[in-house]
Amino acid sequence: MDVTIFAFAVPAVLFAGVSKSGFGSGAAFASSAILALVLEPGMALALMLPLLMLIDLVSLKPYWGRWNLRASLLLIAGGLPGVALGAWLYSAVDADVMRVLIGAVSVGFVLWQLRAKLGWPVVAARPLGRAAGALAGLIVGFTSFVSHAGGPPAAVYLLSLGLRKTEFQASTVLIFWAINLAKAVPYAGLGLFTRETLLLDLMLVPFALGGAALGVWLHHRIPDRWFFGLTYVLLTITGIKLIWDGLV
């Protein structure tokens, strides 16, 4: 709990708030990747989870009832076994493996967001079925547990349904409110929450709430490409650095 940690934590938490409340949650995990540069991966994940849960909670009200409930419940149901799988993996590997995994997910997210320019399909040609939704949910739960990065697989399924921007955003708020709530139990069981992380969480609450309010405001005022342009740069740099640190 020194100046360096605060210098990384404050912008990371603000960024998470803006992303989760305004831009579909997909880039919020950048906050964990940033913090993993100065903290052990487990501590970075544990520090962010209560703040992400708080952002989820305050983001529910402005989007209440505007989600696609059927699709959201399908992803949540599929996500619960994914959370269990993530908890098993975390207990079986060391910190360097987690650094590589978080870094790989970060770089993979950038490639996924650039998929149109790379010639990859942007969304499915037709709506994905229930089986594909359940599989997407499993991946959502797993990637969310190990790096708070469940946004991309959720987006693949939700975007295939042709949801409008606000319906998509509201659905992601509901999905990750439930998934993050489920993650808190194994996080506590693995001993990831400590007195120090919870105390720092209390200090960062104003920045989480400020970021959430700013995200809702920006959702209706700026194009997604501006926000994600900054995200690509942050994730590319932090992802490569984490992979390097984990391997070396």
Rank of each mutant, 00 (worst) to 15 (best):
M1F: 01
A9H: 04
P11D: 11
V13I: 15
F15H: 03
A16I: 13
K20M: 04
S31N: 07
A33P: 05
A36I: 04
P41K: 04
L45S: 02
L47N: 01
L47S: 07
L49M: 10
P50V: 00
L52P: 01
L57T: 13
Y63G: 06
G65P: 10
R66I: 04
R70K: 15
A71T: 09
S72E: 08
L80R: 05
L80D: 03
V83H: 13
V83M: 07
L85M: 09
L89P: 02
Y90V: 15
Y90P: 01
Y90N: 01
A95H: 12
A95R: 07
V97S: 05
V100A: 07
V100Q: 00
L101P: 02
I102V: 14
G103L: 11
V110G: 05
Q113N: 15
Q113E: 11
Q113H: 14
V122Y: 08
G133E: 12
L135P: 00
A136Q: 11
G137V: 03
F142W: 13
F142T: 08
T143R: 11
T143E: 12
F145H: 04
A149I: 05
G150C: 02
G150E: 01
G151F: 06
V156Q: 00
L163C: 02
R164Y: 12
F176D: 03
K183L: 06
F193D: 13
F193E: 06
E196S: 12
L198H: 12
L204G: 09
P206W: 01
F207S: 03
A208L: 01
G211E: 06
A212G: 00
A213L: 11
A213R: 06
G215K: 13
D224W: 11
F227C: 04
Y232I: 00
Y232V: 03
V233G: 05
K241W: 12
G246T: 00
L247H: 15
